[in-house]
């Protein structure tokens, strides 16, 4: 239809077009529960031998009071809602002493604090639409050493847009002081575009504005090599064989001991990734569509090769 955009030459993808031309036709609704519920995502990924942070246990009901007994044996873990959005309700515990648990930022939490947090999650405080939710208690990821200096706090993650099984664009997201350790752009995290060929960072974006340095640590954000880049691209492409969502966002973290792990999948990934990369998504999406319908049946390694060809041209 009519395009009024002065950024047409960039091939900027807007929300309307993302929804009408990509999400609605390519993402079948029946698959949404699989990605909206992180517990289901994790189980399915794990069953297909894709790397995820280890699940210690999950809680579905308030009366499962034995969870606190089990928590006592854990020193470092993450509590998060299964259907949370935007990193809300995530509690990262980094230590345990005789007074209780220490969360990130050194705040001390008692057993009743944890219990309250867990029952809030169960009641649906952090879930989409306020529906009752489940609690995930899992392995605490610690950032890979090569990304740690830039990050202010929390764990940076790597968002990859997978279109019909082909990784088309990527962004490294750093938490900031403002975002409170979360890697969510609209809460104030920064997004950094990534060169798809080499996995080296490019521009950064912070609150819709272009930046060159991390606002808290003042460290330049371009030119950082993402560790295990080829492995990440391969794992991303493999996910399409498990989740047949034509247009999805995949969030990776790189653990210092375990390497790339898949945190979550997103059936409606945001569009700020374009600003971080200084490039629109449309040329790359069109290039994938130009390959014809056979793309989705190719092997993951072939799709990664195609991803490199496409991003080289675009």
């Amino acid at each position: 239809m009519i395009s009024l955009s002065p950024f047409k030459e960039f091939g900027l993808l807007g929300i309307n077009r993302r929804n009408a031309s990509y999400i609605l036709p390519r993402n079948p609704r029946r698959l949404y529960p699989l990605v909206d519920d992180k517990l289901k995502t994790k189980e399915l990924l794990g069953a297909n031998r894709l790397p995820v942070p280890e699940l210690y246990f999950s809680i579905a009901h308030n009366f499962e009071s034995n969870y606190l007994r089990e928590l006592k044996f854990l020193k470092q873990f993450v509590i998060k809602p299964a259907r949370g959005s935007g990193g809300k309700g995530i509690l990262v515990i980094i230590d345990k002493n005789e007074l209780g648990w220490v969360r990130i930022g050194r705040e001390l939490l008692s057993a009743s604090d944890l219990e309250y947090h867990i029952s809030n999650i169960l009641a649906g405080l952090y879930s989409l639409g306020g529906l009752p939710d489940k609690v995930i208690i899992e392995y605490r990821v610690r950032s890979h050493l090569s990304l740690r200096p830039v990050a202010f706090q929390g764990v940076p993650d790597i968002r990859i847009i997978l279109y019909r099984g082909i990784p088309v664009m990527s962004m490294l997201r750093f938490p900031t002081k403002e975002s409170g350790g979360k890697a969510n752009l609209h809460e104030g995290a920064i997004g950094v575009g990534v060169d798809m060929l080499k996995g080296i960072t490019l521009n950064g974006v912070y609150h819709d504005k272009l930046i060159e340095r991390h606002p808290d640590t003042r460290i330049p954000i371009s030119g950082i090599q993402i560790p295990f880049w080829d492995l990440i691209l391969n794992e991303a492409a493999k996910i399409f064989d498990v989740f047949k969502l034509g247009y999805m966002g995949i969030d990776f973290v790189v653990d210092q001991a375990l390497g790339p792990l898949i945190l979550e999948l997103n059936a409606r990934p945001g569009l700020n990734i374009q600003l971080a990369n200084g490039a629109g998504l449309l040329p790359r999406l069109n290039a994938v569509d130009a390959l014809g319908s056979s793309v989705e049946n190719m092997s993951f390694s072939r799709r990664v090769e195609l991803a490199r060809e496409i991003t080289k041209c675009a």
């Binding site: 009024l4 031309s21 272009l210």
Partner: peptide
């Protein structure tokens, strides 16, 4: 309607710098 939203022009205004 798959065109760009008016507020997106503001959101992606930094593209003009690029």
């Amino acid at each position: 309607y798959t065109g760009i939203r008016l507020t997106e022009l503001w959101r992606f205004r930094e593209f003009s710098k690029i």
